[in-house]
């Protein structure tokens, strides 16, 4: 088993929480993990990404080579496109369809949508609306993770177990909201 994942978005969107859940699930399966994160200056509203590699064999590089990522999980559509050169030809993009516009020269949203649609394997979801409809506005990132579950090749139940362990200290309501978010994401895909 080997999955190379690029997680991306804008600083503060919660990509590291997604990484934490995947990492926890993988750790529990005794898999090897490497996860390179971006800290520091880039967090101030800039683009952020994390390279997450999971494998049943030892992993050498902390970074994913170009053209090798199996999945891009993105909290923002333009950020998903930023890392397309890292995606394997048969790789999947699972992205939020909601632009995060904090720069004056943000590209045309329709053209962005077309460029995404032109790629072979893309799931684009309005996770913010889905989260609002379900009254769990703070769990949009877990909806995205739910939608990515099949592409990741990690059992749904194992992701749920990881959510239970990671969010346990935040109380039952938070665990419940995030479990629902995972399920909504899986259904939406």
């Amino acid at each position: 088993m080997k999955v190379d994942i690029i997680l991306c978005g804008v600083g503060g969107q919660g990509i590291l929480s997604i990484a934490t859940i995947i990492g926890e699930a993988a750790m529990n399966e005794d898999l090897y993990i490497k996860q390179a994160e971006v800290h520091g200056m880039s967090q101030r509203g800039g683009d952020v990404q994390s390279n997450l590699r999971i494998s049943s064999n030892p992993i050498s590089s902390d970074l994913i080579p170009r053209g090798a990522a199996d999945v891009i999980i993105s909290m923002e559509p333009m950020e998903a496109l930023r890392y397309v050169s890292y995606l394997a030809p048969d790789g999947w993009i699972i992205t939020s369809s909601v632009p995060f516009v904090n720069i004056p020269n943000y590209p045309d949203v329709d053209k962005l949508r077309e460029a995404l649609a032109a790629l072979p394997h893309v799931v684009s979801l309005d996770i913010e609306q889905l989260a609002k409809d379900a009254a769990i506005p703070r769990s949009a990132n877990m909806i995205l993770l739910g939608a990515a579950q099949r592409a990741l090749g990690i059992d749904f139940d194992k992701l749920c177990d990881a959510v239970r362990r990671v969010f346990a200290r935040k109380g039952d309501a938070v665990v419940e909201a995030n479990l629902r978010a995972l399920a909504i994401g899986r259904e939406a895909h």
């Binding site: 509203g45 496109l81 050169s85 890292y86 904090n102 943000y106």
Partner: peptide, 15 residues
Amino acid sequence: PLSIEDASLVVPRPP
């Protein structure tokens, strides 16, 4: 690697 046709669709997002 894969690529997108119109590279100008991705612009820098500085902190």
